[in-house]
Amino acid sequence: TTVKVNGTKYKFDTPEEAQKFAKKAADKYNLKVVVDGDDLRVE
């Protein structure tokens, strides 16, 4: 599972880890998590 934040992709072994990271990033930058198929985007 990958998470894309500000054009940078981060790869995670499990969707749970990816979800946690995406949520933290979204909170930090005051953005929202967008599900894109198997991957997540923070925008």
Rank of each mutant, 00 (worst) to 15 (best):
T14S: 11
L31G: 15
G37V: 04
E43W: 07
A18H: 00
K24M: 14
Q19I: 14
P15N: 07
P15H: 09
K20F: 10
L31H: 07
K24G: 08
Y29A: 06
V35Q: 12
K24S: 13
L31V: 13
D13C: 11
K11M: 12
K9Y: 14
P15Y: 15
K4C: 15
T14E: 03
K11T: 13
A25I: 15
A26G: 04
K9M: 14
V33A: 03
D13T: 11
Q19R: 13
V33N: 01
K32G: 06
T14V: 03
Y29F: 11
D36T: 05
K28Q: 11
K20L: 13
L40M: 06
D36N: 05
N30W: 07
D36K: 04
Y29C: 11
K20M: 13
T2S: 08
A26M: 04
D38L: 12
D13G: 11
D39V: 14
V35P: 08
Y29G: 06
T14M: 03
V42L: 15
K24R: 13
K32A: 10
V5M: 12
A25Y: 15
K23Q: 14
F21I: 00
K32F: 10
T14R: 04
A25T: 14
D38S: 10
E16A: 10
K4H: 15
Y10N: 00
T1A: 06
T14D: 08
N6Y: 12
A18T: 01
T1W: 15
V42G: 02
D39L: 14
D27E: 14
D27G: 07
K23F: 09
A26D: 02
K23V: 07
L31R: 05
V33L: 07
G7Q: 06
N6K: 08
T2W: 13
D38I: 09
A18F: 02
V3G: 00
G7M: 06
D39T: 14
D38M: 11
F12A: 00
Y10A: 00
D27N: 09
K23G: 05
N30Q: 10
V33P: 01
V35W: 14
A25S: 07
L40N: 02
A18L: 02
F21L: 01
V35I: 13
L31T: 13
A26Y: 03
D36W: 07
E16Q: 10
Q19C: 15
T2R: 05
A22D: 01
K4F: 15
K23A: 10
V5D: 01
D39E: 14
D38G: 10
K4Q: 13
V34K: 06
P15S: 09
Q19P: 00
K4A: 11
T2A: 06
T8I: 14
E43F: 09
V3L: 02
Y29P: 04
K9L: 15
V3P: 01
V5T: 02
A26N: 02
R41Q: 06
G37S: 04
Y29Q: 05
G37Q: 05
E43C: 14
G37P: 03
D13S: 13
D13R: 14
D27M: 12
Q19T: 08
K9D: 09
F21D: 00
K32P: 08
T8K: 15
E43D: 09
D36L: 06
A25K: 08
K28D: 08
T1Q: 07
T2E: 05
K24W: 15
T8E: 07
G37I: 04
D27I: 11
A22W: 03
K28L: 13
G37R: 04
K20H: 10
D27C: 14
G7E: 04
T1P: 06
V34T: 10
N6R: 11
V42H: 02
K28I: 10
T8N: 10
D38Q: 11
